[in-house]
Design a protein around this nucleic acid. Sequence first.
DNA 1: ATCCTTATGCTCATTACCAGTATAAACAGT
DNA 2: ACTGTTTATACTGGTAATGAGCATAAGGAT
Lengths: 310, 310
Amino acid sequence: MVASSVAAELIAVLVAVTEAAPQVLTIAEGASLPSGPLSPEHRSLQAGVRAWVERQTHHPLGYVEQLYTFADNDRNAASHADGRAISICYLGLTREQPNAKDDGATWCNWYDYFPWEDRRHGSVGDSTIVQALHAWAEAAPKPSQIRARSLRIAVAFGLEGRRWNEELVLQRYELLYEAGLVAEATRDGITCHSDTSGLGLGLPMQQDHRRILATGIARLRAKITYRPVVFELMPPMFTLLDLQRSVEALAGRLLHKQNFRRLVEQQELVEETGIMAEPTGGRPAKLFRFRADILQERAYAGTKPPLARS
Amino acid sequence: MVASSVAAELIAVLVAVTEAAPQVLTIAEGASLPSGPLSPEHRSLQAGVRAWVERQTHHPLGYVEQLYTFADNDRNAASHADGRAISICYLGLTREQPNAKDDGATWCNWYDYFPWEDRRHGSVGDSTIVQALHAWAEAAPKPSQIRARSLRIAVAFGLEGRRWNEELVLQRYELLYEAGLVAEATRDGITCHSDTSGLGLGLPMQQDHRRILATGIARLRAKITYRPVVFELMPPMFTLLDLQRSVEALAGRLLHKQNFRRLVEQQELVEETGIMAEPTGGRPAKLFRFRADILQERAYAGTKPPLARS
DNA sequence: ATCCTTATGCTCATTACCAGTATAAACAGT
DNA sequence: ACTGTTTATACTGGTAATGAGCATAAGGAT
């Protein structure tokens, strides 16, 4: 009943995939996510986001879902003096990389911000990160805290026999933030107790936008394992390898080709077009198209896991 | 960047389970969910919710997560004239039913609001609902809309060979709302074209609180299948049947006893206390306790599905 | 002793999942 | 023409998860 008045904005994590590279739409030369006002003329928030994004990018948004609402006092430089600033964040998927650079928006490979999340070609640089994190863990005042931190590190980075979980994007970023290993942390006044201070992993963003992006990546990585949303990122026709490369780009790891194909086909999510792809040096591949008719049903019926897996 | 100023409030879906009945904390004699202000003195929203709830109920909150942020113009009577009212909703789990009726808060069985969601003793009353929904579908102006509506109905209610999906709580409520079969719809000016008008299924709530509750139930039902959160609702010691009854209460359907036990034990989520439960007419059951030590790890590591299934 | 009730242990078939092998279809170079 | 390279596609075996059932154990009540 008690409703305080606060400053609120919409923030969008807009994702596309081009050539096996996951892209996110940014402004301010890659330092910010696009944000817009909470316009009262739309019936729902969702509709507001969609309208605003489509007006800016001139591209239809295939899929939109709410991501999270952030309102942390200490992470948002834009907080009002009187109240709190709320960021209502959305995740949007769009087909192809739009050429619309009109208003200073650019598409950036999201692994520029999270290099450690791309493990398609091995886990390069992990040891440095883990070392620095362990230094931070050891710097905790109480033994119980040291243990707690070490456990968090081990779980997040798949150490000690655990396996890497590609959905823990946010947990990993938050660890690095708390340990002072990303630029935003030092900016926010977090001191790094280890001598590896200021590793400055990945490109920073303004305010807490990188955290929002991490949330979006995590959500999308989780989503593709149980909802057929990858197709929102694909062109009208694609080969199964194209599709696999896109999933791999999002998940940050490679998949078993044969099993991937079987999964896709037994899901009956695609159908042949009868057209063959351009030759690329090997046996030419069939072009497939997404079965839009099945989407309606699968869009919210929890059936089998549509894609991904090891 | 453009940040409009809006009215904002916190809303909590607080859940407990007593005697195989899922309970939700309400105010205004069951017509509202508890809501509080967006107090700027807390570091995060989460902390704010926790503090405010614990102060009101005098009970520790075992688990809190953000649910959704609603800001629909047409569903929220509390909208400002100038701007938009935002409801940031949280889901909270608490152990046992607190006796705290201090400030007019009462615990209500959530199936009072969603009778059709409880299928533990068969699907009573479904045919009436489905009939009324089909009447609404047929009343659509265009054939394509009729088909779309029929599909939504079939998916949501598991018709035509499909199976009931207990996580589609929100979809079912929204269908009933659109079809004018719940009291809120007529209140909001939605006319019901069929003669089954005003079925008035379930108890109504103020504003869009029933929709928020539906969202909470859906989320919780999904959550228990992949995170061990049920234990937040259990007393310190319980029998495996107690645990099963709680899961069944939340899921709204019965589970296979032996398989449930196998799942719980192979997850190593519980340990024996050595104590036996009070005799209840059959062979006495062992009392178990939740292994709090395992929680840390499982809390965010995506391992095996902890509970539920058919 | 017999029956009822609940607890608990075990089996079995089906299916999902993972990894590997084998073959097919194109092209480039010798 | 033959060989090697690349990519596509088919098939196979092992393991684990899942769903449904049977059987037995341990208590109380008749």
